[in-house]
Amino acid sequence: MLKSPRFDELVAKLSSLPGIGKKTAQRLAWHLLSIPKEKALELSTAIQNAVESYTTCSICCMLTETNPCTLCTSPERDDSQLCVVESHSDVFTLESMNEYRGRYYVLGHLLSPLDGYGPDALGIPGLLKRIEELKPEELILALKPSAEGEATIHYLTELLQDQPLKITRLSVGLPFGGDLEYSGALTLANAFKRRFPA
């Protein structure tokens, strides 16, 4: 027998990861079994160590090794701005830009009835608590421009309309430095519609 239930289980676990299909999972499984045992086990140890040491920040819901996370505790950050994002990786992306100095809140999901995500799936109570405690002047909704992103922006704007907050969203338009000819037709049309005085 070439393949055993153990092999199948490994493939099933690997292919449950985002972006990995059955074929890739099989290739990875064969690879893990063919390299020296200690090399393969380093991976499982790394997974175990990371999983055990990371937790969710009780303030902003970001993944962190210290609770609350350094983004929430750092005195360097600006309390007047709170940026709402969909996922942890969005925080990572925005941080690598090294421009934004305010605080964050991670929703975890966008509204998506197709995936079973209603308002309950969004960390709304945590967000309300965060706003109450932080009292930011501006709430920045850094959510992606899609059917789900638009619905979530609409939902949050309505939910928070009575708060003494300036609610903003990210601009939709052309990537800087990109050639017009390589921008998608919709991106270009949007940028045209939302043009502003030079």
Partner: peptide, 25 residues
């Protein structure tokens, strides 16, 4: 995509506020 989301919502026990969001979407 909005229609697909809204249809999925209509199949569930939704709260009225969520319905309004997808209506205006």
């Amino acid at each position: 995509q909005v229609v697909a989301q809204r249809n999925a919502l209509l199949k569930t026990q939704y709260d009225p506020q969520q319905k309004r969001i997808w209506d205006s979407g």
